[in-house]
Design a protein around this nucleic acid. Sequence first.
DNA 1: CCTATTGTATTAAAGAACTAGTACACTACA
DNA 2: TGTAGTGTACTAGTTCTTTAATACAATAGG
Lengths: 141, 141
Amino acid sequence: MAPVIERRSIQFSLDPKSGVPYYKQIILQVEFAIADGRFATGDQLPTVRSLAVELKINPNTVARAYNELEIRGIVTTQQGTGTFISEKQLQLTEVEREGALDGLIRPLITKAASYGFTMNEVLTAVREGFEGMEHREDSES
Amino acid sequence: MAPVIERRSIQFSLDPKSGVPYYKQIILQVEFAIADGRFATGDQLPTVRSLAVELKINPNTVARAYNELEIRGIVTTQQGTGTFISEKQLQLTEVEREGALDGLIRPLITKAASYGFTMNEVLTAVREGFEGMEHREDSES
DNA sequence: CCTATTGTATTAAAGAACTAGTACACTACA
DNA sequence: TGTAGTGTACTAGTTCTTTAATACAATAGG
């Protein structure tokens, strides 16, 4: 058999009934794939057209998802070339990183506290959440 | 001077320019006040009409906020009587509590990991977030 | 009872969000 | 240089969200 070329790629899918807009579903799936190890720095995402065909939606909808991901610094796009997982995380300053994390966490704290959860409960749940992720550290080529 | 009757009440306010819908702003302020200690179990919230007048909005908008809070189990409402901070948190089963917490935390984990934050960074930020809250444990009459 | 006070239901209007159609612009490479 | 492949801009139409106007229903207390 011919050797299978190892291309990082993930299986996208949309749920029209979920009420979650398509472009957000795409964003979430990319974020999850990164968190997961299925996408890594430098990997190319499907082109807007190919993913649009695959998902049977308009290219602009894919483009919108990619755009938001770029604004968040998660991907980098080059017109004419493609969209790639960014290396920007490593370039953020400490202050920027802390600010971003704070923005993610602050609403969680408030809600958790309103629901009566203690700090330790939240800490434990976060720890378990991370551990349940099973980073797939596949050998890199 | 006449003694001031200690009525738990919070100062609500709306920012029309924030882009956050009024009913969500109200929900957030109630949640925050609970997390904060300014509202405690059994306290009565302002009536839908009084708060509507105070904020110069329609009573239905306040009612919607209170409704969502009730769905989430944070308040209890009785037609003809009023809306009160619920005691339900304490009545949830362990399983229900864990499920609720998981729902809050799972999106955070994914996003934090996508942004390249480590588990320890997140744990530290959560800890600091809780500690910065300064629960106001006022004496309960 | 009856009245004042509470939350609720129904409907409608304004605006924002979402998706798609179509045409444009940049890049790589033969 | 020209062609195929990439992302982008502009526009329009539909749907959903949000808020409000108005009328209804339940409770508490004289």
